[in-house]
Amino acid sequence: MSYLTLSITLIFVIIPLLLSKTLRLGLEKDTIVATVRSIIQLLAVGYILKFVFESENILYILLMVTLMIAAATHNARKKGKAIEGITWKIAVTLVFVEVLTQSILLGFQIVPPTAQYIISISGMVIGNSMVLSILFLNRFTAEVETHRDETELILSLGGTPKQAIHRQLINAIKASMIPTIESQKTMGLVQLPGMMSGQIIAGADPIQAVQFQLLIIFLLLTTAAVSSVLLGFLSYPSLFNQRMQLLKGKF
């Protein structure tokens, strides 16, 4: 696509702008900001990726992955402010998931060890892990708050913090994984996954695109399960103190 054709695509921005103006939706400013931001951000990423892919330098790859993990951690930590040390707990989760998935992919030579593959797949894994962390933290904080009585009851009867929080932890882990599993059930029927569509448009063999998409689907199942479980088990202890008391006002 040339920059000229790309400019023509701005028609797709003008239509909502006109609609917003005529119907007084008041969305003109937001639409323009969103358009400008996406142009700048994506072009910048495109040029950076081009540079990194061409250089094939392991240091640049590591730097890119580190930046992704930092940005994802920063995004997810807001949901878990009440949990002490949540920043490093999310970071540990993301790093673990990234190392685990890349070790399997590269170790079994499922994908070639090139910047192109490592960075694109890392982006998907880290992005999904971040979403899972946010889903988990939202649900977990809500569960802990609603079931304070039960937690206190189990502690009062001589249960450990782990026993006292077990049901809430399991509920939150399950709830956070459900969207991943559900969306995969309808994959290909309701919607073609974005990455597969992209590959097909770019001229790839559909069967190969499907095979690759299957790999990603399985990968994201692992990502979802490992992220929630690991973050869950890292998080719950900070709701209690050394005397096995549920800390007040945490949530």
Partner: peptide, 19 residues
Amino acid sequence: PTELRRHVGIALQSAPMIK
């Protein structure tokens, strides 16, 4: 703490139940 709480049992005012 777990030993203490078994030694000194409590029936809480709100009679909370597990599911």
